[in-house]
Design a binder for these strands. Structure first.
Length: 206
DNA sequence: ACACGGATACTA
DNA sequence: AGTATCCGTGTC
């Protein structure tokens, strides 16, 4: 299935990933990440700005800046963290500020048995409640780095969360004050429950 | 609380 | 070459 076949069929087209990166990160909450034989609703994301964000790979890594230059919006940025966990991000570039959006948690919707097999755990809540968990559950690895999420095979279907909260990002040491973590309110599927900085995410975030 | 373990970008 | 750092998970 090509990009043209996906328009108006529920799949997020490239245009979705050409918004401002914060709008995109928030808008992804409630959408469904579909990967081969498995899928899950995105309930948590984090936004990283390509420019001026000390917590973004582009701040220190030439390879990350080259990745942004080289690829179109909607390309997967997959990398190994702490030597053992693959993390998947989506490149956002085009009309607004450029960014890389980390997918941090899913509510499993399809292919749960496969997820259990790849994860080695049974509890539904443990399958995708973290960025490293969800890649393992879906079978995402470094081989998927630079894969186009707007082209075929894998991708994201449109959807919407009932309510979205914005909170401080997790696990970082720099630029910790930025409220660039987005999660579905009241969702039991997130990696970490909203903290004291969480607010309802309105239309006027900056 | 801590162990686990690899890529990247520094220093030299 | 060696070192510091890193968007985490599982088990203790």
């Amino acid at each position: 299935m090509g990009e043209a076949d996906r328009s108006s069929s529920g799949w997020l087209g490239r245009g979705f990933f050409e918004q401002d990166f914060l709008e995109c990160a928030r808008g992804l909450v409630g959408c469904e990440l579909c990967w081969e034989d498995a899928a899950g609703r995105i309930v948590e994301t984090e936004a990283y700005a390509v420019e001026g964000d000390a917590a973004c790979h582009t701040f220190t890594r030439r390879s990350a800046r080259e990745f942004v230059e080289r690829n179109p919006a909607g390309t997967a940025y997959v990398y190994l963290n702490y030597g053992m966990h693959w993390l998947i991000n989506v490149l956002v570039k085009g009309r607004g500020r450029q960014g890389i959006v980390l997918i941090r948690a899913l509510e499993p919707t399809r292919g749960l048995d496969g997820m259990r097999g790849r994860r080695g755990v049974e509890a539904e809540r443990a399958l995708c409640s973290g960025p490293g968990k969800l890649t393992q559950a879906l079978g995402i690895t470094g081989a998927d780095h630079e894969r186009d999420l707007c082209g075929g095979g894998v991708g994201i279907r449109s959807g919407r969360a009932a309510a979205v909260l914005e909170d401080r990002r997790i696990g970082i040491s720099r630029a910790v004050e930025l409220p660039w973590r987005f999660l579905e309110a009241k969702s039991p599927w997130v990696s970490v429950k909203p903290g004291p900085w969480a607010r309802v995410s309105g239309l006027a975030i900056s």
